[in-house]
Write a protein that binds this DNA or RNA. Structure first.
Length: 420
RNA sequence: GCGACUAUGGUGUAAUGGUAACACUAGGGUUUGUGGAUCCCUCGAUCCGAGUUCAAUUCUCGGUAGUCGCCCCA
């Protein structure tokens, strides 16, 4: 017989309880922050018609990076690679009913068919928080503030990360002088996007290919922006001032920041790890005022961001910010002999009725093995049930962290567990 | 899609052209109602396929997987 492999599928992860605990910790922090700003949770199916992504997500993403298949009815189906198109679809569908401004969040999983490497897998989870119906800079301030607060909640200090911002409109404005076609403009944004990872000469050559002999003029203008603080575009300056008022000072203007997705229209931002070993964008977002047009022609102003669990986890690991596993179970009941099982079950039921999480060990192993197991599972309290307990209805409640024992009656168990 | 490196029990390591050792873990026992202790026993591995060879876990090639980088990137 062939042995079945225990390996998980390429690029996806198994979440053992300790792993799930950490993931839930991260999600919990995300939830706490966005809910404090009034964001409501939504969700959707992992399957979407492929057409949804054809419109605006970017050619590369749809052609090479998605899992798609034809279903039995001949429909072209895709495992969602991102949430924004789904969200836009949901909002567009019930636009008249929803009431704006609308603030929604979700922590769904996504699939992308790519080569797994550090900080990037084929399946990942990502917080998505979006606000619809706010045209002004308040949306940017709010979302970027939330990004900042999540980082702080996770234990990061300001110098651990830096928030880069830019405005796509602003680049487009510069490009209007050059009479470029839409496609050429698009190419320029892609080259910009790559700039920080490209050699300067190569970058300049690529720009020159598109702009010809005017490229020097263009590049000079851009570098002026980059270097001269006074020339920072007004909206960026405004945004930075407002963030500073909120106590967020690790923000910089980066005229080359583009982000990969095609649907961004205005301000975009990315949060970078300042650790030189992990010089990569951790997460980001931007304004996409025109995305909802693809459904009914009406635009709805929108600003949102996404924060993935893989990069967040890498960050926490590198800063030693992973929390220690804590069991959700309060009490572990050992049974010393099979004949005390019924008594133990009754006790467990009574305690559960008082909202205590109780696990019963039915292994009937030696008591030291049972205790060892309780310890391994990180359950904080143990009671062993044997002849004495059944006879007297008195118990020895053992606190595992220091081995201290407390003599208690049945009615005292709950209060002792909660108090100490 | 491209490149580099890697691949031994569940985990971490060892070794050799003659089929594998050790530690931890797990299971069982011992000490006979309180754990991270001692002692004993047991389970358990050379990624897959082909080639060279009397003999391959070891050498060669291919595949697969992992790690890192490139491309790309929410």
């Amino acid at each position: 017989m062939n042995k079945l492999s225990t390996e998980s599928y390429k690029g996806v992860r198994d979440f053992y309880p300790e792993d799930k605990f950490v993931q839930e910790y991260i999600f919990g922090k995300m939830r706490k922050v966005v809910e404090a700003f009034g964001y409501e949770e939504y969700d959707a199916s992992i399957l979407e018609p492929t057409d949804l992504y054809r419109a605006k997500s970017g050619e590369e993403l749809i052609n090479e990076q998605v899992y798609n298949f034809e279903d039995r009815g001949g429909r072209d189906v895709t495992l969602r690679p991102e949430m924004t198109p789904t969200l836009a679809r949901m909002v567009a569908k019930k636009k008249r009913d929803l009431g704006f401004p609308l603030r929604w969040y979700s922590i769904p999983n996504f699939f992308r068919y790519e080569r797994p490497q550090k900080g990037r897998l084929r399946e990942f989870w990502q917080l998505n928080a979006d606000v619809f119906g706010v045209e002004g800079i308040e949306a940017e301030v709010e979302i970027i503030t939330m990004s900042y607060k999540i980082m702080r909640e996770l234990g990061a200090v300001e110098k651990d990360f830096i928030i880069k911002i830019n405005d796509r409109d602003f680049i487009n404005f510069f490009l209007t002088d050059f009479n470029l076609s839409e496609e050429e403009k698009y190419k320029v944004t892609k080259i910009f996007d790559r700039k920080n990872k490209t050699e300067v000469s190569k970058f300049e050559n690529e720009i020159e290919e598109i702009l010809g002999d005017k490229s020097n003029v263009f590049l000079n203008k851009i570098s002026e922006l980059e270097n001269a603080e006074g020339k920072t575009p007004a909206d960026i300056k405004n945004l930075m001032e407002k963030l500073e008022k909120a106590g967020i000072t690790n923000v910089v203007f980066d005229p080359f920041l583009m982000r990969g997705l095609d649907y961004y229209t205005g301000i975009v931002f990315e949060v970078f790890d300042t650790n030189p070993d992990n010089n990569r964008a951790m997460f980001g977002g931007g304004r996409y005022d025109r995305l909802l047009e693809i459904f009914d022609g009406e635009k709805v102003p929108a600003f949102g961001f996404g924060m993935g669990d893989v990069t967040a986890l890498e960050f926490l690991k590198s800063r030693d910010l992973i929390p220690e596993y804590i069991s959700l179970t309060d009490l572990y009941l050992c049974i010393l002999d099979e004949k005390y099982t019924e008594f133990t079950d009754d006790l467990a039921q009574a305690l559960r009725a008082q909202d205590i999480n109780v696990v019963v060990d039915y292994s009937y192993k030696k008591i030291d093995k049972q205790l060892k197991n309780a310890d391994k599972k990180k359950v904080p309290f143990v009671i062993c049930i044997g002849e004495n307990e059944v006879k007297n209805d008195k118990f020895v409640l053992k606190r595992m962290v220091d081995g201290k024992e407390f003599e208690v009656s049945r009615g005292e168990i709950k209060t002792v567990i909660e108090k100490i």
